[in-house]
């Protein structure tokens, strides 16, 4: 979008620096709450003891990073995290895009906005609430299992089976977020020149053909951009969701980096270890972001920064 960027206002520096003052509160906020705490990252390289503080704690170099990679469960945890996070990104995007395309076809304004509001709603609910709903629906005595057993499929222990737990996590998250995520795609669709559709219709292109050859290519830059942004969260599979739904039975398939670090780091009060994992994850996220940004730039000429 380089071309669409605002041109700098043609005013003297003195005048524009006055306007820069408006940014100050935000910048100070950012400095205090986002940049200052980064100082705490030193604890990842220390044996941090709260009473001794950052300056009194002993430096131990990469000890906690080595320890992290040596943990017996780390392979399983990373695998779960990747599967769940990638599953959420992939299915979440597919569904959001499909939903946006379908919603765009609705001509009745009232119906469109009603549907939109309804599918947005779950996004605004916390997982603490939704997990309770999910547990009620999916436990062995829940309505889903009652339907399943009444149509002869038999009961499935969604919350306690390593075969289905990940699917449940991905499924419920996609359900919660797809409506909200579709907003950006809807906007992309509205940005497509209606003239193209009209021309294609006159040339006899079917609805499918028009979606395939006009709508989707038109959305492509946004899709690539969103993929790149989403990939940065490839190592966060959603703490609050998993934490509220999992149990020791499904550690094997459902234990993700966040919950693992929570149990090992916070409950065991290993602050340094928790910080080390957080830092490692941020490093991976940054790497993903840079790579994805580079790739999308190459493929579509679109970049995040």
């Amino acid at each position: 979008m380089k071309s669409k960027m605002l041109k700098p206002l043609n005013k003297s520096r003195g005048q524009s620096s006055f306007f820069h003052l408006f940014v100050m509160p935000g910048m100070i906020f950012l400095l205090i709450f986002n940049y200052l705490p980064m100082f705490g990252l030193v604890m990842a390289f220390q044996d941090f003891v709260p009473a001794k503080g950052f300056f009194g704690s002993k430096f131990v170099g990469l000890k906690h990073f080595r320890y992290m990679l040596q943990l017996p469960d780390i392979g399983r945890v990373i695998r779960n995290t990747l599967i769940i996070a990638l599953g959420k990104i992939f299915f979440g995007m597919i569904l959001a895009i499909a939903f946006a395309i379908l919603l765009n076809e609705i001509r009745m304004k009232f119906l469109k906005s009603t549907v939109q509001t309804i599918v947005y709603l779950p996004h605004f609910l916390s997982w603490v609430v939704l997990a309770a709903v999910a547990v009620n629906l999916f436990n062995l005595d829940g309505s889903v299992n009652q339907i399943l057993s009444s149509i002869g499929i038999g009961k499935i222990n969604f919350l306690g089976s390593n075969q289905v737990f990940r699917k449940l996590i991905i499924g419920t998250d996609v359900w919660k977020e797809f409506g909200y995520n579709s907003v950006v795609y809807l906007a992309a669709i509205t940005g497509i020149d209606p003239g193209l559709h009209e021309a294609a219709a006159i040339d006899g292109a079917s609805w499918w053909k028009r979606i395939w050859h006009i709508t989707i290519p038109g959305m492509m830059p946004i899709i690539m951009l969103m993929t790149a942004m989403n990939l940065t969260s490839v190592l966060s599979a959603g703490f609050d969701q998993v934490y509220n739904l999992y149990s020791p039975i499904v550690y094997e398939s459902g234990d993700v980096l966040d919950t693992y670090v929570y149990r090992i780091g916070l409950v065991g009060r290993q602050y340094s270890f928790g910080a080390a994992v957080g830092l490692a994850r941020s490093a991976v996220a940054t790497l993903m972001m840079v790579t994805a940004n580079h790739l999308t730039d190459k493929l579509t000429g679109q970049r995040i920064y």
Partner: peptide
Amino acid sequence: ANLQTLEEENFI
């Protein structure tokens, strides 16, 4: 913490 996890998971 890790051993506790191991214990809980295996027992259940």
